[in-house]
């Protein structure tokens, strides 16, 4: 009976700190874009975007506190996304 609705939620303060972190990373990614690092700019901005995305996913979307079904199905999706990206580049680079 107790499991029909779980009531785990994050406090406003926690959510607001996540928002501030996201702002900080946005500032960093804009700042870094003014420094010319060649190809590394792309990788750094993608890395920062992934960190920001993970914050949104884990806290705002509550994934950190979900059960196995959601965690593994999400990782499965990312795995297939990875296959799509890597196989496409495998094809394009060796044509």
């Amino acid at each position: 009976m107790e499991k029909t609705h779980h009531s785990h939620y994050l406090e406003y303060r926690t959510l607001f700190s996540i928002f501030l972190l996201l702002l900080m990373f946005t500032g960093i990614t804009v700042g870094v874009s003014y420094i010319d690092l060649g190809v590394f700019n792309v990788w750094i901005s993608l890395l920062i975007a992934s960190v920001k995305g993970s914050l949104v996913l884990l806290f705002f979307m509550h994934m950190k506190y979900e059960g196995r079904a959601l965690i593994f199905s999400f990782l499965g999706t990312i795995f297939f996304l990875f296959i799509m990206i890597s196989f496409t580049f495998w094809d394009v680079s060796f044509r």
Partner: peptide, 16 residues
């Protein structure tokens, strides 16, 4: 939708 924008922003706006 926010998550997708997080990737759109650097890809389109921040390319050096």
């Amino acid at each position: 939708v926010d998550l997708i924008w997080i990737f759109i922003f650097p890809l389109f706006y921040l390319i050096i």
